[in-house]
Simulated assay, not measured.
Amino acid sequence: MSKELRSRVRDLAEEHAPATLTDRRHLHAHPELSFEEHETVAYVAGRLGEMGIPYRSVAGTGLVAEIGGGSGPTLALRADMDALPIQEANDVAYRSTKAGIMHACGHDVHTASLLGAARILAGVRDELKGTVRLLFQPGEEKLPGGATLMIRDGALQDPVPAAIFGQHVHPPLPAGTVGFRPGIYMASTDELFLTVRGRGGHGAMPHQSVDPIVITAQAITALQQLISRESDPTLPVVLTFGKIESEGGATNVIPNAVRLEGTLRTLDESWRKELHQRLRRTVEGIAAALGGSAELEIRHGYPFLKNDEPLTHWAQSAARELLGAEKVVDLPIRMTGEDFAFYTHHVPACFYRLGVGSPSPVHTDTFDVDEACLQTGSSLLAWLAMERLSQPAASNSK
């Protein structure tokens, strides 16, 4: 790709920066929960219409749009649009207008950046050597994940994209920087709902009861030993129970049942499947041995996220060309999850981090961003698509 076109991308990103900022602030002020993004998708559709970019509705509250056409491969860019059930504490002009709902995970930044990239790409559409498909996705924060519905509705079909790129805000990195990790990057995420049943009674006469709290305590210990003693120590696995509550009970009352909620995360699909069986066998066996019973519901979440290694190495190099080598960093493995993972199991994919320089982490009521990140986010998405379309490898992989 010529230096002239690279300069043009930077210039277009700067030219459209005010519109991208307006988009981000509007979206931040009007957040919507997963699969309820009706106002959001209408806003995005209106912006695409202003650019003359055709689109179609998918996944209930999602959109697929395309720029370019004719000969050449298709590449996809994805942004998620949903917010979280959090009451915003920031005192800013663009704070959430929706009680108890906030863009606390940066999806407003993702969507605004993709709209910004669309403006850049629309400005050079006659020079595109293929098609760029824009995926505006609902419901990343809630099972089954909006990505599954986008895929169901053909977002990766007719034709299958040669590659897909996605980005996510990263508070520790300053605005203007990005981070990459080739290969396996993020964990699978399953939700666990465990009920341990016993027989309640007086706390002073435990021999007349079957204490589900004691059973639960042993079950938790055994499950953590399962992770520490039976998992390959070189394979990251996390088991966390974040909620425990009894059905009744008091200082001198043994309850009838205890309920737990937790999460299981790993980076290997075979071991993930095996763990499901071992978890269930362990809790049922311990409960039965102590005179009670246990029921474990496992809600399958997102698979592990794997960045295509050649594609991601290439994307790192392309990012250095656009932003400068000092602005591109390497990332460690994360045990958090992302439904972008579903795309990575269908087509070559690269999911990277966008620095936003926030002192507050995501999913908190004070999360906000250095809005200089928007120009980086929009220009890099556009640049990756344009640069990749110009590569012979992209054409050959169609």
Rank of each mutant, 00 (worst) to 15 (best):
L5G: 09
A13T: 06
E14C: 10
P18I: 05
T22D: 15
P31I: 08
F35H: 06
H38C: 09
H38A: 14
H38E: 14
E39C: 01
E39R: 09
A42Q: 01
G49P: 00
E50N: 05
E50G: 07
M51H: 04
I53N: 02
G62N: 08
L63P: 02
S71R: 15
P73D: 11
D80I: 01
M81S: 06
D82C: 03
Q87G: 13
D91W: 08
R95I: 12
K98W: 07
I101N: 03
I101V: 15
H103G: 11
A117P: 00
G123C: 09
K129Y: 13
L135A: 09
P138S: 06
G139R: 08
K142S: 02
G145C: 00
T148I: 10
L149F: 10
L149E: 14
L149Y: 04
D153S: 10
Q167N: 06
P172D: 01
A175T: 08
T189V: 06
E191A: 11
F193W: 08
M205W: 02
P206T: 08
V210W: 00
S228G: 01
S231E: 10
L235R: 12
P236R: 03
P236T: 01
P236Y: 07
F241Q: 02
S246E: 04
S246D: 12
E247V: 04
A250S: 14
G262F: 02
R265H: 09
T266F: 06
T266E: 04
W271I: 07
E274D: 08
H276W: 07
Q277M: 06
R281W: 04
V283F: 03
Y302F: 12
P303Q: 02
N307W: 00
D308P: 06
L311P: 00
A318F: 08
K327A: 09
M335G: 01
G337M: 01
E338D: 09
F340A: 07
F342M: 09
F351M: 10
Y352F: 08
R353F: 02
S358L: 14
P359V: 13
P361Q: 14
V362R: 01
H363F: 12
A372S: 12
L384N: 04
R388W: 03
A394V: 04
S397Y: 06
S397K: 07
